[in-house]
Nucleic acid binder design. Structure first.
Length: 112
DNA sequence: ATACTGACTAGAA
DNA sequence: CTTCTAGCCAGTA
């Protein structure tokens, strides 16, 4: 799955994030073997934000601090509301217990 | 080819 | 705690 195209890989990993879990750009980038390309992860998501055609849970992807940096890319229902709906504690556009809900693709997927 | 931008991160002050 | 710096890479002009 890796190496074909960075974007498709990012989208694939994000799509695998389980309900009620969140991950970070850096974690995804690290799983893809490009730890320095965390920015590209967010950039990739920007081209495929959640939509009827692309059911991608991009709202589960946040920055290392737990801040919902990509909320501006969403329209209508805010990113925070979606996370709260999944049982994740969010306040002031920031995940409270990031470590509790953190989902590490590197562990979950075991270096596929 | 350069220059700028961006859903980032880690380190330093 | 905040703010700044530098590094990173893909896309665009």
């Amino acid at each position: 799955m890796k190496k074909d195209n960075f974007y498709a890989d990012v989208l694939a990993v994000v799509a695998l994030i389980p309900y009620g879990k969140v991950t970070t750009y850096g974690a995804i980038a690290e799983y893809l073997g490009a730890k320095r390309s965390a920015r590209m992860v967010g950039y990739a998501l920007n081209q495929s934000t959640y939509s009827p055609e692309n059911p991608l849970p991009a709202h589960r992807v946040i920055n290392r601090s737990g801040a919902l940096t990509g909320k501006h890319a969403f329209s209508g229902v805010s990113m925070a509301e979606r996370l709260i709906s999944e049982g994740i504690l969010v306040e002031n556009d920031c995940v409270k217990d990031l470590n509790t809900y953190f989902w590490n693709p590197n562990e979950a997927l075991l270096h596929f």
